[in-house]
Design a protein around this nucleic acid. Sequence first.
RNA 1: GCGGGUGUGGCGGAACUGGUAGACGCGCCAGACUCAAAAUCUGGUUCCCGCAAGGGAGUGGGGGUUCAAGUCCCUCCACCCGCACCA
Length: 858
Amino acid sequence: MSNERYNVKETEAKWQQAWDEADCFAAAPPGDKPKYYVLEMFPYPSGRIHMGHVRNYTMGDVVARYKMARGFNVLHPMGWDAFGLPAENAAMERKIHPRDWTYENIATMRGQLKALGLSIDWSREIATCHPGYYAHQQTLFLDFLEAGLAYKKESLVNWDPVDQTVLANEQVIDGRGWRSGAVVEKRTLSQWFFKITAFADDLLERLETMERWPERVRLMQRNWIGRSSGAFITFELEGRDEKLEVYTTRPDTIFGMTFGALSPNHPLTASLAETDSELADFVALCNSEATNEEAIETAEKRGYDTGIRVRHPFIADKSVPLYVANFVLMDYGTGAIFGCPGHDQRDMDFARKYGLEVFPVVLPAEIDPAGYELGDEAYLGEGRIVNSGFLDELTVEDAKAKVIERFEADGIGRGAIQYRLRDWGVSRQRYWGCPIPVIHCEDCGIVPVPKADLPVLLPDDVSFDKPGNPLDHHPTWKQVDCPRCGKPARRDSDTMDTFVDSSWYFARFCSPRAERPVERADVDYWLPVDQYIGGIEHAILHLLYSRFYTRAMRRGDHLDLDEPFAGLFTQGMVCHETYRDEKGAWLYPEQVRKDAGGATTLEGGRPVTIGRSESMSKSKRNVIDPEAIIATYGADTARLFMLSDSPPDRDLEWTDAGVEGAYRFVNRVWRLVGDAAARCPSAQSFDSGLPSAFGESAMDLRRKAHKAIAAVTEDIDSFHFNRAVARLYELANAISAFEADGEGDLWALRETAETLLRLAAPMIPHVAEELWQSLGRDGLLVTQPWPEADSTLTIEESVTVAVQVNGKLRTTLSLPLDVEEAVAEQTALAHPAVQRVLEGRAPRRVIVVRNRIVNVVV
RNA sequence: GCGGGUGUGGCGGAACUGGUAGACGCGCCAGACUCAAAAUCUGGUUCCCGCAAGGGAGUGGGGGUUCAAGUCCCUCCACCCGCACCA
């Protein structure tokens, strides 16, 4: 057998070029074939691809190539999520224009992706920063505006006073701006919102039907939408004209109310604070509190007694104090609550701290309410209502219904559904994003840019010298005449959140050069995406926003679709060990030499601490550059390793040994099939007909091949790529163990070698293509149909049956398939191993499961 | 706190609706080839006892159902992830 290795670089480049020239991966127009749209989440052009991309795109590529072989018209496009903050940071740090930085990165990364040999239809490539894309996004924005799905409102934002910009919550770290370090202020700004809440119910309900989405993601979305059912109640305030509206999910506990509480940001709080400096101080204190997880966990409940009394709606003469409390959130419900300490732990903590009244109104049936005292634990369980007038003795559920009925009759409240989901704020005070196509006119107010005037292009001549939004301090860009009255007006200088860009790109891929956002015929044909693949980190925002966009675009008649992604697969991350030197500084893997005892630095031999394996990240330096791997081992090896070692939805541990293993297999296939090619009949004589009879070992090999076809097919269909790879290894082992003797055997060898190539082609397409050619085959393997398993060959003539005595394995028997149960029983009982254990005892019972097991019970 | 997931050899992981636990790979051991090494090939490799034949134990711990449990039920433990003062 040859020891030669195949020339990875030349071979891979050759076949990539061949596929390109034959235009193999261009999606065809609608025709006879069924369609299949496979999409991986498009990358942000950060500079270079990373292993996470390699894993993601390899999985998508396996699916795309497999579906192509199965006869589908496949759409497998690629694009760039190209707007975003890093481009502006690069502009500030390196004096390079965001556009140039972005397009340079795209060029680099496109080259890297092409080197992976992905079956991408590059003619459909899009970049969201290109006017050919964002122009249409502006059209959609105007449609949303017209449909009432986009609106402007004042909202509280995180304002960085140094950088003069709004920060997302994730960009505020311990109350300070992530870049400037300045203490972040809360500011009220006028911002654009998308009315995602208009679809809250549908977004929630549809989740139930999305069976090809991971349960985990559906659950996260369900929680995020956060539907709750309860009631709004309006309370009277003693001696004041205004009323207080609260939201509660426990209207049944209304008789247990012992205080009321306002959010520090409630309008009533604000008006009271105008004349109460102590309250103003309290509010300021609350707003300065950290809102991160640990802080909330440990934060003490604090309140300020306003002196106002809230009237109980059903108990004449009863009133309770009204507090401003730090734990009441302005952005849920009405920003005010009624406190029932008996049945809400937060209310309990608060009541105990401020010495407020505490008593139960729900108790388990076995407890006598007379004189019963609650401790410091609120009772949250089921039971019957007590101490509650007309609600007494009802169940919690019945009491809710009855009290809501009463509220509605009295005109002081109503049953209501509430959502945690907020409308999506999309304004960003940034340059590198899609300009919001509206004009502000002093006389006419907000005026949409006429569609004929689109796109509103980003100006190129911007300066990043000053902090703040370059669009805002551009000398002329904002100045425009009002399209309605013609008077001088100004453009909205905000740009859209980059999540907007990624919320409809999957639809644009269907007709990437259309003069409208989408062509109806194309989206009708291609959508929904049949298989979407990406990281779990987008489980909520991106996927929810895309679902919103589908609904909003449907209103504008751009498409007619319930859900954008029929199938979703969330792949695991790529992990690597971490290394630190004696000072605790992170080290790159290539700086480390590992040996038996541990590890040292390559230069200087200093001791290295090996840390646990974590998701590859630049900050921990535990990264492997895909380009280096491809240069050394080739794309096939990188792809195979991505698929072979772990189930696709779990994290994958990158190891040098694992890569070496994949490399070995690629070379092994090359030698194995190359060898077979040298010995086997020519393609022409092979195709003229198989021999009528094969020897036993040849039949055995053929059976293995057809079982492999059935197994690999099933494994790819069910996203078990690691199992599919194991099947390929088994088949390769069978080929290499096969000793061909005579012409019939050579035919079987050739047939099996071709099968191996076809099955392996979606995973290691370059070497498969090379070997296909070496077998004397014309045309490209990529255009070949998927092999069919011959059912007469996947069935064994004999089966191995386990023989147990009292459930313990004693021996195995080789029996003819589907042999009579009595025969199996007799054969098992006669076996010496069984006889020995029985020691002459007669079996009490014998259980025979056909083709599987004989269990003798004594 | 609420919700979800995972736990199988030295390691990554297989195991269909309960039916031979450990496929396949990595690592390791031995052998072939070689002056030697690498590469490659062959064989072995869950643990314990045994030269062997064979026997015993074993899927995070404990208990249960069953002829039979990694798989079903109860209970406990560990780790991971998501959400979180949502009234």
